[in-house]
Simulated assay, not measured.
Amino acid sequence: MADNKPHPEKPHSDKPRGGWLARFAPGVRKIVSRRSNETPDNLWVKDPDTGEMLYRSDLEAALWVTPSGRHMRLNAEQRLRYTFDDGQFEAIDTPDVPEDPLKFSDGKSYKDRLGAARKAAGRKDTMMIGFGEIDGTPAVVIVQDFSFMGGSLGTAAGEAFVAAAHAAIACEVPLVCFTAAGGARMQEGALSLMQMARSTLAVQELKAAQLPYVVVLTDPTTGGVTASYAMLGDVHLAEPGALIGFAGARVIESTIREKLPPGFQRAEYLQEKGMVDKVVARPDLPETLGAVLSMLMGGKRRAA
């Protein structure tokens, strides 16, 4: 394990608290709408629901939750910092795997696509693993980053999941998985589908060791990930509005030839149907996770 203990960003303002950020952070100012061509691209972020231009630093202080309540997607490092106490964690290296085993090309070689994704993300693949404490309870957390090739499940992601499970077992602590995926990675063919079975076996190892496995479903969680480790947790939490399902809504409608109900495949709808245990707003996730993990561990704090 290598030390990696960054701290979450804090808002830099001495103005009175107010506006939509009052419940997230003190000292922030009211956001005003501006046209995107009036400011640099990295200073303002567009609310996908309302079109309002939001000041980036204020949005970061709000953990990337917009005034409209949209929980915007996070990268893996942001997710780990927002989850662990004081943003402190130890990064666990993910295993190396053979690259481009099928020599796949879809107009652009898989090797080139991997290279571009790695350059943009600054890491090997979609998964990132950290070890630390969540509201005082030690845990291993694995995060799936949708920005890395749509969070697609390939051999690297499968190996990372197995490594995270084995780290949790070695430390005798729970495993928490934040899912975000568009499905299996087509460039790896059947090898990607095998990761569904491998990750399922890793979950069974956790259960054999009597260690909790908790899943936090984020937007979007679909395809083979939903059909495997995303739905094998002891407890399933979800962020508000997260898209969760296997096949897309249009595919389902064309198959059953019926109109789907409003909110179908969204976190709130799945909570009503019993597929999700609780929908939790992002600022409340660490406290909720800590309570769940402490309860499942019987109040014990086991760590190597």
Rank of each mutant, 00 (worst) to 15 (best):
M1C: 10
H7F: 00
R17V: 12
G18D: 06
G19T: 13
W20L: 06
W20F: 13
L21F: 10
L21C: 07
G27S: 14
V28H: 03
I31P: 03
R35L: 03
R35V: 03
S36M: 10
S36F: 10
N37Q: 11
P40H: 12
L43C: 07
D47H: 00
P48K: 07
D49W: 09
T50M: 11
E52Y: 09
M53D: 02
R56S: 05
R56A: 07
S57G: 00
S57R: 08
S57L: 02
S57F: 09
A61G: 15
T66L: 00
P67I: 05
P67E: 03
S68R: 15
R70G: 01
A76Y: 03
E77G: 04
Q78R: 04
Q78C: 05
Q78T: 11
Y82T: 00
T83P: 02
F84R: 08
D85Y: 09
D85P: 01
D86H: 10
Q88P: 02
E99T: 03
Y110L: 01
K111A: 13
D112F: 01
D112S: 11
D112W: 11
A117P: 00
R118M: 12
K119A: 15
A120R: 13
G122K: 13
K124M: 08
T126Y: 00
G130I: 04
F131M: 14
G132N: 12
G132H: 12
E133W: 06
I134N: 02
T137I: 11
P138T: 09
P138L: 13
V143W: 10
G151D: 04
L153K: 05
G158Y: 10
E159P: 01
A160Y: 00
A167G: 01
A167D: 05
A168S: 15
A168D: 06
C171P: 04
E172L: 09
V173N: 09
V173H: 05
L175F: 10
V176K: 02
F178C: 02
A180P: 04
A181C: 09
G183I: 08
A184I: 14
E188Y: 07
A197E: 09
S199I: 06
S199H: 08
L201F: 01
E205Y: 00
L206W: 02
K207A: 08
L211G: 13
L211T: 14
V216G: 03
L217V: 09
P220R: 05
T222R: 11
T226M: 13
S228P: 09
Y229W: 15
A238P: 02
G241D: 06
G241K: 01
L243W: 13
A247S: 12
R250P: 00
T255F: 14
P261C: 01
Q265V: 11
A267W: 00
A267K: 00
K278Y: 05
A281N: 11
P283V: 06
D284E: 10
A291W: 11
A291N: 14
L296C: 08
L296S: 10
G298C: 12
G299Y: 14
K300S: 04
K300G: 00
R301T: 10
A303I: 15
